[in-house]
Simulated scan of single mutants.
Amino acid sequence: MTIIPPAPVEIAGLVPACVEDSGSWCATVHRLTSSDFMARHADLIIGKTISITTIVVIAILFRWLAHRAIARMVDGATNGRFTALVGRARRLRRSDRGGDAAGNPPGSQRRLQRARTIGSVLRSIVSAVVLLVAVMMVMSELGYPLGPLLAGAGVLGLAIGFGAQNLVRDFLSGMFMLLEDQYGVGDIVDVGEAIGTVEAVGLRITTIRDLKGTVWYVRNGEILRVGNMSQGFAVAVVDLPIAHSADVEEATELAGRTATERAAQDDIAADILEAPEVLGADRIGPEGVTLRITAKVSPGRQWAVQRALNGAITDAFDDHGVPRPMLYPGGALNGGSAKQN
């Protein structure tokens, strides 16, 4: 007589019933480890492990693809293919005059710096978002309730938002300044309280050095308007005071001829984009008449051109005896020649 043993009953401390299912994780784990505890929880452990591993792999793959796309975008920006997205292609082409010591146009260096900064910020944002989503999905797989966690995170985020609203405003302002290319390193700007050369552009702080050498650290969120003297082109403005007794037409013709001759000389010829324009009498006051001459020049070179034209025209006025306003020691005005023998 053949006796058939009863099927195993899953009782604490005994072999779990699932080991009889040869195709289950329970039977496989029990066969490999001979552990009743591991076999009893095999489906849960292995299933969750596979789900969590899948989430992690997908998150890593998505982050890698996103970083690769950002890197390609930065590469396109440095080669001029991304400028249309920020709407500055035409202005950047105008600013690509001259070059640095390595022969690279300054506009390319400007685009390279801005693109690298934006790319770094985008990569950080992508990594943070992917990490947050992956952690939440893993916690959901492990059975943790996300409702209280999200509610707590919302309250914490609201508190941080109120406490760090100035920091958030500085960050957003810095992002828009970079995207819109309002200014860059090396530009001469007027941001209200500080006027000088931009030495560094960050997401929170812009560093400016003024003409006296003072370094100003300006928060991006506090910059309400920007006057950039280094984008596209600049204008050299030369004001020439002459006395009321001077022949305005003759002085204007002499100033224009001298400015044209001086602009053709090698030291400033490369900086002048258009020939000097004589605007004539710009202002008439009790001290005399002011003639004005303007010239379109390369960005940041307006002061050098102004000094050169001022010096040349002053010498020409002196040589031709054009009378100009003068002050007696007591402060009274008198029209006379600037050259005294």
Rank of each mutant, 00 (worst) to 15 (best):
T117P: 00
G107H: 00
R114Y: 00
D100R: 04
F82S: 14
L92I: 09
V86P: 00
P106L: 03
R68F: 14
V74F: 00
P105N: 05
R114N: 10
A69H: 07
R110L: 05
R91D: 06
R72I: 12
R114A: 15
V133D: 05
G103A: 03
H67C: 11
G80Y: 07
Q109E: 13
T117F: 02
R81M: 01
M139F: 15
R81S: 13
G99F: 09
G76C: 05
M73G: 09
V121W: 09
R68K: 13
D100W: 08
S127G: 10
M137K: 11
R88A: 08
T117W: 00
D96R: 04
A66N: 07
R88W: 08
Q113I: 05
R93L: 02
V135S: 14
Q113S: 08
T117A: 12
S120E: 15
S140D: 14
V74R: 02
V135F: 13
L65F: 11
V86L: 06
V130S: 05
V86C: 10
G103Q: 04
R114W: 01
I70Q: 03
T78W: 00
W64I: 06
A101D: 10
A89K: 13
A71S: 11
W64L: 14
S95R: 07
M139P: 03
R110V: 08
R81V: 07
M137I: 08
Q113L: 10
V126H: 12
D75E: 14
A89L: 07
R91S: 09
W64V: 12
L65N: 03
R94P: 00
M137W: 12
L142F: 09
M73L: 15
N79D: 15
L65E: 12
T83N: 10
R97F: 09
V133W: 08
S108G: 06
G119I: 01
S120C: 01
T78V: 05
R111N: 06
T78Y: 00
L131S: 14
R110Q: 11
Q109M: 08
F82W: 14
L92W: 11
S127R: 04
W64T: 11
R91I: 12
R91C: 00
G99W: 01
L92E: 12
R123W: 05
R114S: 10
V133A: 13
S124Q: 12
M137P: 02
L142I: 10
M137R: 12
D96K: 02
G143W: 06
E141I: 15
L65M: 10
T117G: 04
N104E: 12
A84R: 14
R111V: 05
A115L: 01
A89F: 04
E141R: 13
W64N: 07
A71M: 01
W64C: 06
L85M: 13
M139V: 06
I70M: 02
D100E: 01
Q113A: 07
G143S: 06
A115F: 06
G76E: 02
A102R: 10
V121M: 14
G119K: 02
T83F: 08
R110E: 06
G98M: 07
G87E: 04
I118D: 00
P106V: 02
R111C: 05
V129R: 02
E141G: 01
D96M: 04
A71C: 00
V121R: 02
R68Y: 13
I118H: 01
D75W: 12
R93G: 03
A89Q: 13
